[in-house]
Design a protein around this nucleic acid. Structure first.
Lengths: 148, 148
DNA sequence: ATTTTTGCAAATGCTTTGCAGAAAA
DNA sequence: TTTTCTGCAAAGCATTTGCAAAAAT
């Protein structure tokens, strides 16, 4: 189970950096791993608050930063002014397809696009360090109903 | 001169929407058009403040929104938590190559990439409405010096 | 016993908004 | 004269931070 591996990885990270585990961190990580792979700090906070109502939102933010540092999460910025945290299971690279109707997020990989990006960069003498590719549209379920 | 055309376009937009022109709007538009094609509200404010120190930042923000509504500008979000406004001369579509050293921004178009994006979307049953592609790296001038 | 964590409240940084006075039409 | 604009200060919003108390080693 990936959950167990992630937890082991996290405690290794803590130990390696002279940090401590805590009931809050354990709870937050557990909740993070048992929710859909893309969520907001506030969503995660709501979830953990159902178990321990005393947990502060700042603690969730601090935990999420640790998860990112430990390589367990990736911070994304699909919408302006709001972060979304993604479970980073393996170190796999991918881009995103986002439904503007229901918010569904699909991860994809396209090597041809990556190659073309490199080509474009080279043409301008740039040395690429990273990129951001996000496709927005409507998923099959939302395609028909113009509402939402 | 594109500047003249943009000004005409703006006053047409104002008229068509029951809005008024003002010395501030004129000044802000003029400054906007005579600066590099990508800038921050604050940068623009600093510029106009050199001519009329009394102009408020809110007025600049309000003007920029009008420019966007009028089709003269496009709001971009290259870095989190900060908008950058781009002169939208024609209605041309393009993506961006951004130097992490000096901030230089290069616009490019790549039809092959666009086609592949459509293909990816179709493969997942999505109907694309927009996308965001940003390539980050180091431009030729910044390639060597690891500083900056 | 020491050092890290936590929760709260306050601070942050960018952007927007309410309002009363100034300026267009 | 009527309606839109402006500048200021205050509000918003997601996120971060200072601090004293609480918890982990």
């Amino acid at each position: 189970m990936a959950k167990t591996k992630a937890k082991a990885e996290f405690s290794r990270y803590l130990q390696a950096n002279g940090l401590r585990s805590s009931t809050q961190r354990d709870l937050i990580l557990d909740a993070f791993l048992s929710m859909p792979p893309h969520l907001t700090a506030e969503e995660l906070h709501r979830k953990v608050a159902r178990t321990d109502g005393g947990i502060g939102l700042s603690t969730v933010y601090r935990a999420l930063r640790l998860f990112c540092d430990a390589g367990l999460a990736k911070q994304r910025h699909f919408q302006e002014g709001r972060s979304c945290f993604e479970q980073a299971v393996g170190g796999d690279h991918h881009d995103h397809l986002i439904c503007e109707g229901c918010g569904r997020i699909v991860e994809f990989e396209c090597q041809e696009i990556e190659d073309l990006q490199e080509q474009v960069a080279r043409r301008h003498g740039f040395h690429l360090t990273r990129h951001r590719l996000e496709l927005f549209g409507r998923c099959p379920d939302c395609a028909d109903n113009g509402d939402v």
